[in-house]
Design a binder for these strands. Structure first.
Lengths: 231, 231
DNA sequence: AAATAATTATGATATATGTCAAGTATTAAA
DNA sequence: TTTAATACTTGACATATATCATAATTATTT
């Protein structure tokens, strides 16, 4: 269960997201007053593709998936995100809509900042703006790598890469609690759930990983890295 | 052959790129003074992935391809661009490097703005900044669509989509001078050049397109759109 | 114009991956 | 605890797409 928000949670965010470190005390104060927050359960939609962006949402606790939806097609999971993740996207200056959905894959807590306040900060605080765009730029760079990976690696390579990245940047322990379903891992790596099953089985048989219930342990990092590269 | 630059070419750009419409006369004056330009021949690299971003480059004439390079792998063409195209990318606020290459696919002319000047404009002119980010956001949205297309459409669907989009947004006439090689069309649609050949042959046989030398004519837009959708 | 290089076309074959189906295990609900 | 629903595994098979090889065009250089 998630604990109630502590009053200094903005301070917490301040430490974790780059952009908000650029704020003056006065700006912080305004932000802190305007702040309110929510919790989401697994599967709940935090941001919906196509919906207007009314607030800047910050994921403060829990894990979420960023999903490209296409009617009649399988979802594409662009990324899995952990706190502090700012749910901003390319629509912010274009059509003020989300161009992807963000969905909780564990219990999550978010807080909100009115979008007008965000624009004001961007317009008046160049340092904040620069850091904010830096964050967006970093995501784009990752997106390029996703495109490369999805186009040029074979299934084993993509699964290896996904396991390594999720372990390193999201779950951060080993073994870790692998909360994605095979379906989701397939949406993340661009393949069917059946193919995911088969590749994981191979990896298990070759002693690269161990899967116990929902726990995954990476046994041979080097070999996985190798497969990921050669993929 | 490309004519020498006219002195009012900044004015021309002003009309065509959104962001620069936000500049005051004084700002324009500074920009105009600092400006100098170059021509490139087909195949020449206008911006190189990994190289530092010293200037904001603007493509003022000709066509260029935006390419993701990966050592040992086939290139991925992210987009084909026509004037006025601002060669900015996600590295601008991150590591000040290009994360893709931009390569001329016809004779091109570009002009340059020192990157410090750009940062100054962004910091001091909120309207300019907003329009600039709008342009970047629009590109990201297109990138999402590329990911969708590459992952979820079959070869015929991807080729249809590519032909329709290139005709509509880049070449703008019909028939049009199809300057991409089969290899490049393959890099644009995520397949081998042989597969491109075969699909184009099918389309020709079904009377959807006509190819004469380097001229391509789209004969049946509706059918192509259909294939693109169902792909 | 001849020669060389690059691009395109096409067939035969290999391979990666998806699809369908059936069964098992796991989780959630009654 | 039993039942129902969901997730996972595995096999047999289908299919899309890549690879390789070779010939035919077309473009470029000499």
């Amino acid at each position: 269960m998630i604990e109630p928000t502590t009053p200094d949670s903005c301070q917490h965010c301040l430490m974790k997201c780059d952009a908000f470190q650029a704020l003056s005390l006065t700006e912080m104060e305004i932000l802190h007053q305007a702040k309110y927050d929510t919790t989401y359960r697994t599967g709940e939609v935090i941001a919906k593709q196509g919906a207007p962006i009314s607030h800047l949402v910050s994921l403060n606790e829990g894990l979420a998936k960023v999903v490209l939806e296409t009617p009649g097609e399988q979802d594409i999971i662009i990324s899995v995100e952990k706190p502090v993740f700012i749910l901003t996207g390319p629509g912010l200056f274009v059509d003020n809509r989300y161009h992807f959905s963000v969905i909780a894959i564990s219990e999550c807590r978010t807080c909100y900042l009115e979008i007008q306040q965000l624009h004001k900060l961007i317009d008046t605080n160049p340092d904040f703006a620069r850091r904010f765009y830096k964050t967006m730029g970093e995501r784009d760079i990752l997106l390029f790598n996703r495109i490369r990976s999805l186009n040029q690696k074979n299934m084993a390579g993509r699964i290896s890469e996904a396991l390594l990245n999720l372990q390193k940047f999201i779950f951060e322990t080993n073994p870790f609690d692998f909360i994605l379903t095979r379906q989701e891992l397939g949406e993340f790596t661009g393949m069917t759930k059946e193919s995911v099953s088969r590749i994981l089985k191979e990896f298990r048989e070759e002693g690269l990983i161990e899967i116990d219930d929902r726990k995954v342990e990476i046994l041979d990092f080097d070999k996985l890295r190798d497969i990921s590269r050669k993929g």
